[in-house]
Design a binder for these strands. Sequence first.
RNA 1: GCGCGAUUGGCGGAAUUGGCAGACGCACCAGACUUAGGAUCUGGCGGGCGACCGUAGGGGUUCAAGUCCCUUAUCGCGCACCA
Length: 823
Amino acid sequence: MNERYDFKEIELKWQKYWEDNKSFKVYEDKSKDKYYVLEMFPYPSGKLHMGHVRNYSIGDVVARFKHMNGFNVLHPMGYDSFGLPAENAAIKNGVEPAKWTFSNIAEMTDQLKRLGLSYDWDREVETCTPEYYRWMQWIFIQFYKKGLAFKKENPVNWCPSCKTVLANEQVVGGCCERCGSVVGKKNLSQWYLKITDYAERLLDNLEKLEGWPQKVKTMQKNWIGKSVGAEVNFEIKGFDKPLQIFTTRPDTLYGVTYMVMSPEHPFIDELVSGTEYEPAVREYQDKVQKMTDIERTSTANEKTGVFIGRYAVNPLNGKEVPIYISDYVLMDYGTGAIMAVPAHDERDFDFAKKFDLEIIPVVQPDDPEIDINNLKSAFVAEGKMINSAMFTGMDNKQAIEKIIDYLEEKGIGKKAINYKLRDWLISRQRYWGTPIPMIYCEHCGWVPEKEENLPVLLPTDVEFTGKGESPIATSKTFVDTVCPVCGKPAKREVDTMDTFLDSSWYFLRYCDARNDKAAFDPEKARYWMNVDQYIGGVEHAILHLMYARFFQMVFYDLGLTDKEEPFENLLTQGMVIKDGKKMSKSIGNVVSPEEIIGRYGADTARLFILFAAPPDRELDWSDAGVEGSYRFLNRVYRLIFELAEKCKDAPKNYEISGKDDKSLAYEMNASVKKVTEDAGGRFMFNTAISSIMELVNEMYRYKEISNVNTGLLADAAEKLVLILSPFAPHICEEMWQHLGHEKSIYDEAWPSYDESKIVKDEVEIVVQINGKIKEKLNVQANLDKATFEKTVMEDDRVKALLDGVSVIKVIAVPDKLLNVVVK
RNA sequence: GCGCGAUUGGCGGAAUUGGCAGACGCACCAGACUUAGGAUCUGGCGGGCGACCGUAGGGGUUCAAGUCCCUUAUCGCGCACCA
């Protein structure tokens, strides 16, 4: 150990040591409790950004802490390495996607190693390798065999810039999640996964996920969007099929004054064909069809629509009401048609006002201020039923049940549940993804490739035109094949899978990453799963985290795992920002991890990022703050360097005597306790580090006193290095060695603390009069309530305070305060 | 529009169960050491001369409120015609 803190030399030395000694390699060991800590694996875009550094620093502290606490820790890393940027690089620069990707992976792996992260690299997973996507294809076939993968033609979200379809989850505010282009609609035959079959389970299980942030659970809940209500059949006058509608408010059936069908509703052709209403209806349909989702929602409050010349009959009271089409009714939710109750639905109210339609109130507000016969807006709250025949007078909530019963009895409707969640569209017209292992045969239809023929390899003889169809279609070797069932010529599917499938099971592959006989050995998965702590950005709250839950449930149903949910605890880390703004190239406020590591070292970078804010909050990058962390490490380094010499012959056993000893022993034990709780339980790394700083400050004070207890000081030095090591591992390895240890600090046991040393003999307490602080005094600690009260009340200064006033009440909180209520 | 979260010194943030607001760090100020200091060490650092006042504003519960309740404002995030 040099006198000067040479982080470059130290960090390289220990990174080499860990690598040479395979320090982080793990095996299934049933004699130990396992702990699986996982950080969301990155897309290999080329370089790490600060968000990655934050994510992985958090994970590394957890992993190292758990390891030192005796757990068998699985801490893997890999790359979500299929995806669009690789293909765009191919189109733009003519580089092969594979080449581009693997060179990025090499660079990022190098950067991750320079951060000193405790990964078991022998388990590295790269989703773009045949070794991985072979099993991705196998999994797809299992889904297919279970009836969970199917192909259908449907209007789909189409990104004109990425030239591919998008899942609903990938359309953000009508725009492509990736490139921001306005998403259009296109009719295409595509593969889907039947995630809707799991809607109820995905929803129900959310409640069991106690280790998840409420925010994420709420977002998923809203996304699944369960609505309970009824389906009701309305007769259409002069038409042989009933108009089926879904409503969550069957209690308002008597208030129906018109009906609205989606412009895309399949009945419309038949209903208007040849009538005088046809031209207007057609024109409206055309207009709506040409609109993007953005245009359709941008005019959200301005209702449009057309009367189609037909009437529906209310099955409860026989009232005939006109039928309209309007774009506010969506074809892909419910039945694509609604009953309109303007008195009790805001959208219907707006529409009725615009088209001057009748408004019939059926729920009476409790609030007498509201004039129900002259509503200014729809009344949507609860109340008593009116104008509703035999249901009049009931509470409207109660009427919902009664009316559903009545509908079922009469055979005109039934209870029904709807979800906003749609099936997951997984086809992508892209090259750089897992080929969908399906084959189309003229005779047998769609059939899966034989499992023994997997993987269906990505062809390399393709052209990247960037023109709509999958580039794989240009391969001369890929498309033509034979049918696995009948042996006749057949054609392969040329689309690839959404990369979100790859990341929906990688955590299981880590359990058994080199298996070439199966996706993973269920025995090994049983040992390692669940992921005890998952860490990543909140931007994955819906997409990735719901898809992964879905996959895990299917695996559970297939008997491949015995856990229905994959992630026990979830930590969503906050963004790294600078000057109050997101780091971005266009603003020019990007701080590169490489530069920081080059200037201060990985330990400083990690320490700062963990110290500057709690992990789930935004982190404001501060160059001065980094300096501070660097200074702190230097301060520790100098201290240990000095103490190693000073305490060379320090006794192992020592006595604590005197005020100074007590004070250091207190700080030492309190710090160990604080770090144990904050780093291991609460994940408040900022306060953990601050308590280590307090210990260092105390040690600096202590070492200057006249009668230093070297035994105690040596103990403090060792504990200090141990508890700092998960945060700043390289420097701590170096100091640990310098303190005379041969073993890597990573393999040392986490220090324990002595609770009895954290108790003070005397505490400063506060005396309040009517809640205002008047006096502070030192009293003996740990007194029982009565003695405490007596001791304080008998103090001269307290007596003086109470002179001449009458005491009404005394509240005593031992070791804290005494509040006297006086008149 | 609906839902969720946040708001504490000049700044990042602490206060875990309602019990001394401002731990720890940054910045700043003063001093020491020094040829020098952008190194290091020591001390100070919410406001006010003070009694006191201070956790976005207003109200409430309580002996006691940053913490619980109501309300307003600002910012951020999510959803957004889902019947």
